[in-house]
Structure formats: C-alpha cells, structure tokens
Simulated scan of single mutants.
Amino acid sequence: MSWIERRKTRTVYVGNVPIGSEHPIVVQSMTNTFTEDVETTVAQIKELERVGCEIVRVAVPSVKAAEAIREIKKRISIPLVADVHFDHRLALLSIENGADCVRINPGNIGAEWKVKEVIALAKERGISIRIGVNSGSIPKNILAKYGKPSPEALAETAINYAKFFEDCSFTNIKFSIKGSEVKSTVIANKIFAEKTDYPLHIGITEAGTLLSGAVKSAIGVGILLYEGIGDTIRISLSAHPKEEVRVAYKILSALELRKRGVEVISCPTCGRCSVDVETIAHEVEERLSHIRKPLKVAVMGCAVNGPGEAKFADVGIAGAGDHFILFLKGKVIDKLTQEEALERLVEEVEKLAEEEC
C-alpha cells in the first residue's frame, strides 16, 4: 500500500487513457516541432513513446496545424491533445480531425458562445477538454477582487469555469492551474482540490532549463503529489521533450507512486574514488533507457560504496583500485577491468530485465 493517499477524483478519459485517482498518475509531454511538419512531429512523438510518454500534446496555432492532426493520429500509438489559444475555430477543427482532447483556456478564447461551440462539438464526439488557467488570463472581475493574480484568484477562476461547463451539461473535463512560481501553483491547486473532484494536470510552467527546471518541478510537483494531488503530470523544461518524461518518472519513482525503467544509483565520489563515476553513470543511464522494467543499477566509485551501501541494487559495479567488482543483488560475482565493466553491467541488466518480464 502506498504511503501517499491520493485525493479522490472522478475519471476522465483522453483517448483510451484514464485519468483520475483510481488509475496510475499519467505522464505526458508536448512536442516542440511545428505541428504541420507531420514527418518531424511523428518522429518526435515516437521518440517520446519509447521513453514512456503516455499522452502527447501538440501546439495548434494555425489551420495547417489543426489539419495535420488527422495524419499524425494515424501514425502514433498514444492519445493526442490539441493545444489551442485565442481562436476557438482551431479547437473545432482539431476535434474534427481526430484530437482525443483539446486544451483551451476560456480566458483567452473570448466570448462565452465560442467556448460553448467547443463544448458542443466535444460532447458530440465524446472527447474530453482540459481547461487551463494561468495568471495571464484571469477575468477582470476576479483580478479586481484580489488585486493581483494570486493563488486564490487562480483557484476561483478555475472553479468558476467548472461551474460554467457544468451549466452546459459537460463534466468530461480536467484542469491545469499552473504558474512559474512553486508557491502560487501549489496553493492554487490545493484550494481547487479541496472544492472539486475534477482530475488535475499538474506542473510548474516555464520551469526553466534541464537542471533548474527539474529541481523547481520536483519541488512543486513533489509537494502536490505528496499531498495526494495530481492525476497527470507534465514537467515543462527548456530541453528535448524526452527529458520531461524522464524527469517525470524520476519524481514519481522517488515518491513510490510509479516505477518505470532503470534507476541509476551513483555515488557523489570522494578521495577514495579512482574511476570516472560521472561519465560511466551517464553512459549507463543512456544505454539502459530502453528498459521498462523497474530495476536499480548502481555505479560506485570504490569498494566502500559497492555491495555495502548499494546492497539493495539489482546489479552494479564498484571501482576497486585498477579494477571493478560486479555485484548482483548485493553479492560480488566477478572482478573486471575498467574496459570490461560497462559492457558487462549493461549485459547483466538486460539479462535481468528479460528474466523478470
């Protein structure tokens, strides 16, 4: 049983993927290609599929992008979300071309009748809508009430949108309430979570580069997940989208909410270390990124940090003078040269992954 009790939510589907508290937290990402470039977009989505992305979102800033959805859908295996801003006609066209969900922000779509047209077509086609709320599109009356785009203003905006959609007899919705600040994002999501049972897509928007963005996201998303809030996540990074997926799984794994792929345990090194742990650990992580089975793999710089401190690793290597020791489930099974160690480690992990499938 998990040490984290998730907030109870209803279930909403994006294509064939269920999102809600009765299901695993879903990992998604967004392409950074021009959507109308079908070949490049499909190639990137397939790359995301390989690292575990379960839902993908594409930008739809033009008619050509909306029309490209039809062909893209034919060639990918995961559900596709159309991300639309400002022009509700692009949302309609995206739905007509087979999008599994549309992401809109009612605050920048415009008049209520435009939102209602999107709702009507989504209802007709049986697809869900993700409602996005951010500090740049809070209604003027709410902004006047709070004086700034505060967490309370963000949450109230989202709650009002929920009521509007309910009045339109449409509840096939999930919400994202995001900001670039950890504090406001966390507080806004907590307020919303206390007052509704709609699934939440969580993340810290515009988090930053790979390192700073991963840290910022781990804190913000981690706090919410620990509180039991969050049914699907996207880690927004100024990096290749596959890094977003990898970071997402590492956050979920650290909280024991989901396990996928190889977790590399490596020591920070010290004066005892006589091998290049950093380079080896990075190469191990890269070469084993295709494995889906949850496995712990250790790369240690000396015998002290070998089977002793990493005894719970499934397989690992530890530098010991001019050679490495190879250990399996905490027990030393071989002594290898530095040249042999990496290849043998990869071989043993792949063998273990096959045996336990």
Rank of each mutant, 00 (worst) to 15 (best):
E5M: 04
R7W: 02
R7I: 03
R7C: 01
K8V: 00
V17C: 12
I19V: 12
I25K: 06
V26T: 09
V26D: 06
T31I: 12
T33A: 10
F34G: 08
T40R: 15
Q44L: 13
L48W: 09
R50V: 01
R50N: 09
G52M: 08
C53K: 14
R57C: 12
V58H: 01
S62Y: 01
S62H: 11
K64I: 06
A65N: 10
I69N: 04
R70M: 08
E71Y: 12
P79S: 08
A82P: 10
D87W: 01
H88R: 10
A91Q: 08
A91K: 02
L93Q: 13
N97E: 14
I104F: 04
N105Y: 07
E112S: 08
K114V: 07
E117G: 06
V118R: 08
V118N: 06
A120S: 13
L121G: 04
L121W: 06
K123P: 01
K123C: 00
E124G: 01
I127Y: 08
R130I: 13
I131T: 06
G132Y: 02
S137D: 13
K140F: 12
N141E: 15
L143Q: 11
A144M: 08
Y146G: 13
Y146M: 11
P149F: 02
P149L: 03
P151K: 09
E152K: 11
L154V: 05
E156V: 03
I159Q: 07
Y161G: 09
S169F: 06
F170V: 12
T171C: 09
I173G: 00
I177R: 10
T185A: 07
I187L: 11
I187H: 07
I191F: 07
E194N: 01
D197C: 00
D197Y: 05
P199Y: 03
P199D: 04
H201D: 11
E206W: 09
G208A: 13
S212R: 13
V215E: 09
S217P: 14
A218H: 09
L225P: 09
D231Q: 02
T232Q: 03
R234E: 11
S238C: 12
E244V: 12
Y249D: 03
A254D: 07
L255H: 12
E256L: 11
L257N: 07
G261S: 07
E263V: 11
S266Q: 04
D276Q: 01
I280G: 12
I280W: 11
A281K: 14
H282P: 01
E283V: 02
E283K: 15
E283N: 15
E285Y: 15
R292G: 15
A298M: 08
M300A: 14
C302L: 03
C302K: 03
V304L: 00
N305I: 00
A310P: 04
K311L: 13
G316E: 06
I317N: 00
I325M: 05
G330Q: 06
I333N: 05
D334H: 02
K335N: 03
K335V: 09
A341G: 14
A341F: 10
L342I: 06
R344I: 13
R344S: 07
V346L: 13
E348V: 10
E350L: 02
A353Y: 07
E354I: 05
